[in-house]
C-alpha cells in the first residue's frame, strides 16, 4: 500500500484530519460532533499515517501506549464528574467558568473536559485495534505489547 503518492500526501492529510478532529470535538457542545466522532476522525488520521509509514511510525508518533491514552481519557472523564463534589451538586453536573483571554470570553466546562476524556478513550481504544490489525503478522503478533 505504501506508494510514493500516499507517502507524500499522508503527513499533510494526517495533520489536517487531526486538526479537524479537534474542531469536531469542540464543536460538539452545541452542534453535531463531539468526543466520540472527533476521536474516530483522529483514529482515521493515524490509520492513514500507519498505512503509509507502518505501525512503528504511528506508535512513535503518538508517544504513549494507546491503552495509556485510553486510560488517561477515562480518568479525565471520571474526574470531570467528580469535580461537582466541591460544589454541592450531584455527580456529572456541568460546571462552567468564563475566563477572559485576550478580551475574548472563553466558556470552559466540565462537560468539555468530559468530552475530551471521551475523545481520548476513543482514540486510545480504536487505535490499538487499528494498529493490531495493520501490524504485519510476525513474531510480535501479540500486538500491543511493544
Amino acid at each position: 500500500m505504501s506508494t510514493l503518492i500516499l507517502r507524500t500526501v499522508a503527513p499533510a492529510l494526517t495533520a489536517l484530519m487531526l486538526l479537524f478532529s479537534v474542531f469536531v470535538l469542540l464543536r460538539g457542545h452545541n452542534e453535531p460532533g463531539g468526543g466520540f466522532i472527533g476521536g474516530l476522525i483522529a483514529v482515521s488520521a493515524l490509520a492513514i499515517y500507519g498505512i503509509a509509514f507502518g505501525v512503528g511510525a504511528v506508535r512513535r508518533a503518538i508517544r504513549f501506549h494507546p491503552m495509556a491514552i485510553a486510560g488517561a481519557g477515562l480518568l479525565l472523564a471520571t474526574l470531570s464528574g467528580f469535580l461537582s463534589i466541591f460544589f454541592g451538586v450531584p455527580f456529572m453536573t456541568g460546571l462552567w467558568v468564563y475566563p477572559v483571554i485576550f478580551d475574548v470570553e472563553v466558556p470552559l466546562s466540565t462537560v468539555m473536559s468530559f468530552d475530551l476524556g471521551v475523545y481520548l478513550v476513543v482514540v486510545g481504544a480504536i487505535i490499538s485495534i487499528a494498529l493490531a490489525l495493520e501490524q504485519e503478522p510476525g513474531p510480535e503478533l501479540g500486538g500491543e505489547e511493544d
Binding site: 491503552m67 495509556a68 486510560g71 480518568l75 471520571t78 467528580f82 463534589i85 451538586v89 450531584p90 455527580f91
Partner: peptide, 26 residues
C-alpha cells in the same frame, strides 16, 4: 446534594478511576 449521597455513585466512579489509572501504568 449532601456529601453522604455521594456514597451511591462513589463505588462505581472509584472503580472506573482505578481502572483508568491501572491502564495508564499497564
Amino acid at each position: 446534594t449532601a456529601l453522604a449521597d455521594w456514597l451511591v455513585v462513589a463505588p462505581v466512579a472509584l472503580m472506573i478511576g482505578f481502572g483508568a489509572v491501572l491502564m495508564m501504568v499497564r
